[in-house]
Write a protein that binds this DNA or RNA. Structure first.
Lengths: 157, 157
DNA sequence: AACCGGCGCTTGATTGGTCAAGCAAATATG
DNA sequence: CATATTTGCTTGACCAATCAAGCGCCGGTT
């Protein structure tokens, strides 16, 4: 029997219920709000910002598509398309990978780095204001751990 | 000066950093995982499930598009399209609103109700397993409140 | 009672993502 | 060493969401 709880399991407690609902709302509202804050301010949608940010954190500002996609929580093809968008804006350049001619490196250009420098204060402010601010007084270490667990999807068994 | 913190504000603490990253991952992974669990089990994507669920919670299983869209965190046009999808599956019917001939009611059909009944145990199990389980020992009331605050987007000032 | 601005909803165009198929380089196999 | 399989990435087709424009009805004005 594939689904052991098919009958009618315990419903959620009111607390659980409202937590789940609130999470749903956050997942919907937050990225849009942060996006809006940044776009209004420095014209960089969240996905593209994340890509630039991850690139900037490597020693030589370059990364294979594979790895970058994983860090950005994007499919490989989604990543390709994001990088193309960034490339046409001159914020990223693509170079064939030396030790494996199938591979590509996305390389952060100086323009890209400059743009990131411009954007991150407003990104940071948005994250604080929209999210972190509401968790003052919480044990962030604990909380982060819980989210990491939840974010690590086990396969659908 | 529109952006007062343009220079180089305090970066995030490591805890804040990892919380933010973990939330990003959760926002990406969780809906897909829950979707996968449910689709694998009872063929109802999360958006459609949410619509049916909200309808089922009204006294007469019907709701104006407006209100339903808000509860589903969907734009009005997104809601229209979702309802159309559900309608073609026979899970929802649309009726002109009596007291205002511009309006429509989405009405949960018996088939829709039945389908919801079938789905919700696996939805519930997914939510528990993928999310709630990782927050045992937390003060859920507090947590829910914090998320509610974060989910209430103030306009971009 | 004829108009007209606003409202409720749908529709068209676009966007940003997914999955599946394709292609070229790399690697394993007979 | 030739061929088959696998790998890394791109491309094509699609999909679900968005925004902006459109359509018909409402309700207040004159």
């Amino acid at each position: 029997m594939p689904n052991p709880s098919a009958a009618s399991p315990q419903p959620l407690t009111p607390d659980e219920e409202s937590l789940v609902r609130a999470l749903g709302q956050v997942m919907h509202v937050l990225p849009r709000a942060i996006d809006a804050d940044m776009v209004g301010d420095r014209q960089l949608p969240l996905t593209e910002y994340t890509a630039l940010m991850n690139l900037s954190e490597t020693p030589d500002r370059r990364m294979r598509m594979n790895e970058l996609a994983a860090l950005c929580h994007l499919s490989l093809s989604g990543m390709t398309r994001t990088i193309i968008r960034l490339e046409t804006q001159g914020l990223v350049r693509r170079e064939r990978c030396e030790e494996d001619a199938r591979g590509w490196n996305a390389v952060l250009t100086d323009a890209g780095y400059a743009r990131l420098q411009e954007s991150w204060p407003s990104h940071l402010a948005a994250v604080r204001r929209r999210f972190l601010q509401h968790f003052e007084g919480f044990d962030l270490t604990q909380l982060a751990r819980a989210f990491q667990r939840a974010g690590t999807a086990e396969p659908t068994d």
